[in-house]
Design a protein around this nucleic acid. Structure first.
Lengths: 154, 154
DNA sequence: TATTGTTATACTCTATAACTATA
DNA sequence: TATAGTTATAGAGTATAACAATA
């Protein structure tokens, strides 16, 4: 017997509320590690590889002027470093420090774990269907590599 | 033939990126109507019915102290009103004004339309499956009536 | 000239603590 | 005392505009 109330949630409503749920998980995990969501996002993006300020701004969807302060704050906490780029004295590469990478991996793992619990009550078949549908939507719409897969060696 | 790259996006990654996509839609629609996402969220919540400050704060997930300013700003723009509650002179009911309701309906419609386009390339069967899965996850986790269904008479 | 990044400024969002008024 | 809401304060995030240094 299927619960009746599940039927009157339309797709858009479901998407908005799911998004609320996911953002909540991300925010709580970030907070637990004394990071703002924006800071945690930066760390996760940089876990893929170092990036220049302009590229990082583009991935985060903020103006590069705003990124200056964001990077300043995580740099003050020794989570990232600005490294000179040989051959272009205007540019900086933002890279994770050791503890920055550790933080990125931990946040990433915990977010994955909590999201795993959220979808954990779905039957495996449904879960795999959801995964495939999401993959399709994501790739179709070219969502940037926010939250990339992270190599597990901290 | 299924595209290979859709297979190496795991569920957590898909959820985080989908959430990014949805938040982006919500932010762009809000901006188009000269609203911040927080303001648009308030309007959509109030479209269900008027609410007290404490209840509204709870739904938004912010402290009531912070809500004061949020409501101040939308009230200055004549989108909501604070109405006295008969029988409790401490309390206020925050209610949509006429133009506030119009704004809520418009934002809601446009968000639904844009999300509809995003999932529009899915075959109808997949779309319905996604809807059902989302409904199940949402109801299981008691996500509050953020983004309620809205009666269409503006 | 175009690009990379920063500074200056202003506003929104949000939290915490202390407060007022009413129940 | 407890509850509804506000004020004060501070910090984070973000946008725009103007700027410096380099390509």
């Amino acid at each position: 017997m299927i619960a009746r109330d599940q039927e009157d949630i339309d797709l858009a409503t479901g998407l908005v509320r799911l998004s609320h749920l996911v953002q909540g998980v991300f925010a709580r995990v970030s907070d637990r590690h004394d990071l703002t969501p924006a800071q945690a996002r930066i760390l996760c993006i940089l876990a893929e590889r170092p990036k220049g300020m302009a590229e990082l701004a583009g991935l985060l969807g903020v103006e590069k002027a705003g990124l200056t302060g964001l990077v300043d704050r995580v740099e003050h906490r020794s989570l990232v470093e600005r490294r000179a780029v040989p051959g272009d004295r205007r540019a900086w590469q933002v890279t994770l420090t050791g503890i920055g990478r550790q933080a990125a991996v931990t946040v990433h793992n915990e977010v994955c774990a909590e999201l795993g619990e959220i979808v954990g009550e779905l039957p495996p078949g449904e879960r795999e269907r959801l995964r495939r549908i999401l993959a399709r939507v994501i790739t179709t719409h070219g969502v940037p590599p926010i939250f990339p897969a992270i190599a597990q060696r901290a």
